[in-house]
Amino acid sequence: MFDITQLLDEIKASPYEEIVVTAPHTGVVTFTDVREGARVIGPSGTWKEKKGTLLATIERERNQKPIHAVEKGEVKEVLRHLEGAFVEAGTPLVRLRHFLSKDEVLAIILKKALHLFVAPERAKYYFAPDVDKKVKASGASSVSLHEGMDLFIMSRMKREASLAYSGPSGVIYAVYFQHNENVDAGQPLIGVCPPDQLSLIEDVVARVQTEWEERE
C-alpha cells in the first residue's frame, strides 16, 4: 500500500521528465544553433505529420539525416564537444527537459494507484448483464469486484464468450473501453482500486486537475 499524496509531492518536486536524444546510428554530428534553455516543440499537426524542432543532423555515407525533438520542452544540455565528431550509435547528443502536462501526471499516478485489467485479445467488450445493470443504475464505482467474478462478455465477430475478472478485489475506478468498439489485446479495459482508496484518488485527481500548472 503506497502513499498517493507522497507520490504527488515527488512529482511536484521535479515536475519534468528528462529526455536524452541519442544518435540513431554512427555518423558525423552537426548541431543546429539550438541553445541551452531554448524551447523546442515535438511533432505537431492532426496526424503528428509535422516534425519537431530540428536539433542536429547526422551524416553517414553522404546521407544527411535530421534529428528532431520528440517532445516539447526546454533544452537542458547540448553536447557541443561532439560537433563535427564521428559518434557511435546511441551516443547522447542533446538532453531535453520535458515538463509534465496534467494528463501525463494523472497517467503516472493512476498507473501506480490502479490495478489495470487488460483485454486478453482484440475484441469488443461488454459488461455482463447483472454488472451492466448496476453500472447503468448507479455508476461504475458501485461495482465491487472479486477474483473469478463474471465481469465481461467478449465478442469477436458476433461469437461471444464470458470473461472472468482476475486481480485484487476493489471497485471500478475508470472504464477505458467504448461500447461497440474493438479493443486491442493488452489495452486496459478497467482500472480497479481498493474501496478505501477511492475517495483519496478522486481527491488527488481533482487536485491535479485544478492545481497543476502546465509549464511550457
Partner: peptide
C-alpha cells in the same frame, strides 16, 4: 551513379536500414 546512402521515408515506422 552517386556514391551515397538513401534513407527510406518509412524508416521511422518500418525500421528500414539505409540503402546505398
Amino acid at each position: 551513379k552517386e556514391d551515397r546512402a538513401i534513407t527510406c521515408p518509412n524508416a521511422g515506422s518500418h525500421g528500414c536500414l539505409d540503402l546505398w
